[in-house]
Design a protein around this nucleic acid. Structure first.
Lengths: 192, 192
DNA sequence: CGGGTTTTGAAGCGACTGATTCAAAACGAG
DNA sequence: CTCGTTTTGAATCAGTCGCTTCAAAACCCG
């Protein structure tokens, strides 16, 4: 065998995710990545191939961790509407946190690169589809429990929730008034 | 007096808008701007100051032209719901046009820069607020005409429409199936 | 047409871009 | 301990970044 790596690949990808998440793809230089990961350029390129490949790995990591936590929240305790509300409010508060200010990495990637890079588009779509599927399941539960009117297709309702949700995350980038965003969340759920 | 300019400032800003719109701020170089505007770097910097200032001017231009056209559509003929539907469908079709693929410049700016540049945030917020105000007016008309239930605050309804609308524009970046997006538009309007 | 003013194109500034090279270092297997 | 393999850091590649300089060109006014 040969010399083992001095770094943890998972930690490196997580650090790269944070950097890409905050500064975008074009806004992140390879030096930025070396600084945030602690790797030298040769290690970085030897391990991952290049900036683009690392970006795709970072997007995957976002899907596994942040989106994963969102999914778990949707599958957690509480009524259907409680869980949908929790998902949206968690994001609203994250978007309004001044020390955060990164928004949703998947949405950022969709806006910056989905139109230019088919691989990015594919990964983002998988992310969105996964959320839609889980929201649909929650809506279905709500309908079964009589909490949400069952006269509409659960998937259609889920897409409505999803659109509003992503729209809120866009508005959260320029809207500082939390009450306005929370009111929209409540209105959305009331009308299901 | 002195030597007059050989270019039309409006045309230059429009060309810069197209370039920034398609490639983003970080994805656009000063060379790209020189190529698309036809100006030399000295003329460009002498006239506008720099890349960032030109970007802000381009955002203003988007507000005046594209958003302006949207506003006019909202103020045009047809029922309230017809006009809201027209606004959303126009954007859906624009987002799905493969030769276009730029999305909404204001949303792009919000995602890429609103968290990093207070001036960009201000301009985007003005854009969003203007749309919200106009949608609110249309909702109000719909309520006065008995087309939309009047038991809800028109502004709250407008914010709901706006969130869904911006969410659709995000989804439009990765969702190729027009029917899915159109169905969400219809569902949104049905539920007002 | 001369004088004053502005714009223009070409050249280039230092800094940084993504990426590569390469020898030294660090290991496990025999 | 040696060999074969892999990783690492340092140095550096050509190219591009945003931006500036400057003299020549282009104009209007008198």
């Amino acid at each position: 065998m040969a010399r083992p790596r001095q770094f943890d690949e998972d930690r490196v990808i997580t650090a790269a995710m944070e950097t890409f998440w905050r500064h975008g793809y074009e806004g992140t230089s390879t030096r930025d990545l070396c600084d945030s990961t602690g790797l030298g350029p040769s290690s970085l390129y030897n391990t991952f191939g290049g900036k683009r490949e690392l970006y795709l790995r970072a997007l995957d990591r976002y899907y596994e961790t942040v989106t994963g936590a969102q999914i778990e929240r949707l599958q957690g305790p509480g009524t259907a509407k409680d869980r949908l509300r929790a998902m949206m409010l968690t994001s609203v508060d994250s978007d309004l946190d001044a020390d955060d200010g990164r928004g949703c990495f998947a949405i950022n990637a969709a806006i910056e690169l989905a139109g230019l890079d088919a691989d990015v588009k594919r990964v983002v779509r998988r992310n969105f589809t996964r959320v839609e599927d889980e929201v649909r399941a929650v809506v279905q539960e709500g309908q079964d429990a009589g909490e949400i009117p069952a006269d509409r297709d659960a998937r259609a309702v889920a897409r409505l929730v999803q659109s509003t949700y992503y729209g809120l995350r866009v508005l959260g980038r320029v809207q500082d008034d939390r009450d306005v965003l929370v009111a929209t969340v409540d209105d959305t759920l009331e009308r299901l």
